[in-house]
């Protein structure tokens, strides 16, 4: 199978006033194949978001290599094929929902059919009625939907999701789940950071457990003999 993500020997430590703090990511290696929905699990502070930011090129690793679609992750060409939903969505509040999606569509270089793509996306993420309202008036759940929308405008082949259901009501959670499942059916690759184990279990094809900056176990969800929650407690333990 083709590797869409290939991470080898990745390490990252943060330093303050020249002093190095503990490693945030310690010699992490993994691969994600085309069409996989890869769940990245672990307690708070395990290094999941740092790993994701390293993959997106927002942070520079101390050591290791990251390849997306077989190319270095700082290659601008691959950005057109990816989507990213951050953990804490922050957008230009002076724009309306529709204007914000238009702006992000332009960043992707979408010119033809921009109106149609944005209009369909507003429907897909359930913000059709609120499209004319300023982002500053949006609730946390609406921002999360908008965040999902900006990441899907280019119909990405690889989607990075960092806690995409945070702050969503049950209907919102189901909507996001359906979007992920739809993309899975289309053979897209998804990297999912989440604490919502029940959701991860429903959508992921494979999961990795991260603890204290290292990946300690990887499982195919189809081969699990117990619930992900039980497995999480067993692997991560109580001494988090």
């Amino acid at each position: 199978m083709d590797n869409i993500i290939k991470v080898e020997g990745l390490s990252k430590s943060y330093s303050k006033f020249g002093k190095k703090k503990a490693l945030a990511v310690d010699n992490v290696s993994f691969e994600v194949d085309k069409g996989e929905v890869f769940g990245f699990l672990g307690p708070n502070g395990a290094g999941k978001t740092t790993t994701l930011l390293l993959m997106l090129g927002f942070l520079k690793p101390d050591t290791g290599t990251i390849k997306l679609f077989g190319k270095e992750n700082d290659d601008m060409g691959i950005r057109a094929k990816i989507g990213y939903v951050p953990e804490n969505p922050a957008f230009h509040k002076f724009l309306t929902g529709k204007e914000l999606l238009n702006f992000h569509a332009e960043l992707y270089g979408i010119k033809e059919q921009k109106e149609k793509i944005v209009s369909e996306m507003l429907k897909k993420i359930g913000l059709e009625e609120a499209k004319g309202k300023r982002v500053s008036t949006y609730s946390r759940g609406m921002l999360q939907r908008l965040s999902m929308g900006q990441a899907l405008l280019n119909n990405p082949d690889l989607l990075f999701l960092d806690e995409p259901t945070l702050g969503l009501d049950p209907i919102g959670i189901v909507d996001i789940r359906n979007i992920i499942l739809e993309m899975r059916e289309q053979g897209k690759t998804i990297f999912l950071n989440s604490h919502q184990l029940s959701e991860v279990e429903k959508v992921c094809t494979r999961v990795a457990f991260m603890k204290q900056a290292k990946i300690i176990e990887t499982y195919k969800t189809s081969e699990l003999t117990e619930s992900l929650e039980d497995l999480f407690i067993k692997i991560i333990g109580k001494e988090i």
């Binding site: 997106l56 601008m76 057109a80 990816i82 990213y84 951050p86 922050a90 957008f91 992707y108 900006q150």
Partner: peptide, 14 residues
């Protein structure tokens, strides 16, 4: 400051 730049730079923008 507030991370708005992250979604912008995840697009093909250096």
């Amino acid at each position: 400051a507030d991370g708005k730049i992250l979604t912008v730079l995840s697009k093909p923008v250096s």
